[in-house]
């Protein structure tokens, strides 16, 4: 994914200010920022929910605005808010998503079995979504995002509201996808403990991209001993815990 010089404003408030970065295939990238940093706005632009007014966003070379179909078919999304249909079963939720991507019934069924196995929900296939726990719902959303075999997955604060075990579980599942399938991931969060040594870290603060690089490079640049310290130094707020 290539984000080039993207800016977006809500009226007079600048939500994103000339943001540029690229995520190569097979990379786990963490978009780190406080609440209101512009993470969700960036997601809305990448998924074409909002139109980019300045700059361009390309997914595997396809401009999100001009070649929306080609760009979106390679993209899997897990939004911050729950987007499951709670009255439908696990299987029906996946079947609906498959239909939205034009995937035929038999292929969708096979893919659903595969992705549910991946996220340990194969035994809950006939359960209504509302009966799942918060962590299971998130795993189902990840399974849904994987159904059409995307090359890039966006996850907008997917661990918000989950307990420690569920958080670790979700993170492990997604990291496993990167390692095994070579899927690129953009993981938006405000929790520094979700960053690993090899991750590409993008620090977004008040709409501006303050840093883009591996964690060790970030530590070297800021002189901090850990990710939290580096983040505090970058946003020049010593007391602000991300």
């Amino acid at each position: 994914m290539a984000v080039e010089d993207v800016a977006y404003a809500y009226g007079r408030r600048q939500a994103l200010d000339r943001v540029s970065f690229t995520i190569p295939p097979g990379r786990f990238a963490v978009l780190l920022g406080l609440n209101g940093a512009g993470k969700s706005t960036l997601f809305q632009l990448v998924t074409r929910l909002f139109a980019t007014r300045q700059g361009t966003i390309r997914i595997f070379g396809h401009n999100v605005l001009q070649e929306a179909g080609a760009a979106l078919r390679r993209l899997g999304v897990v939004f911050q808010a729950r987007t499951l249909d709670l009255d439908l079963t696990v299987r029906q939720n996946l079947a609906y998503h498959a239909a939205l991507h034009g995937i035929g019934r038999s292929h969708a069924k096979a893919r659903a079995a595969e992705v549910l196995e991946r996220v340990d929900l194969a035994r809950r296939v006939s359960e209504r979504a509302r009966n799942l726990s918060g962590g299971q719902m998130r795993r189902l959303e990840i399974a849904r995002a994987l159904l059409h075999q995307p090359s890039l997955i966006l996850l907008d604060e997917p661990t918000v509201g989950l307990d420690i075990a569920a958080r670790a579980d979700i993170l492990a599942h997604v990291r496993d996808l990167v390692a095994r399938d070579g899927v690129a991931v953009l993981w938006a969060t405000h929790l520094v403990d979700e960053i690993a040594k090899d991750d590409q870290v993008l620090v977004l603060h008040q709409g501006r991209l303050l840093a883009d690089g591996r964690l060790d490079a970030l530590l070297a640049t800021t002189g901090a001993v850990d990710a939290e310290g580096a983040f505090r130094r970058l946003i020049k707020r010593p007391g602000a815990a991300p």
Binding site: R48, G69, L72, R73, Q80, R82, L100, H101
Partner: peptide
């Protein structure tokens, strides 16, 4: 609630 997004991010 956000579920409209599921529809609108379809590539069709």
């Amino acid at each position: 609630t956000g579920s409209m997004r599921t529809l609108l991010v379809s590539p069709l």
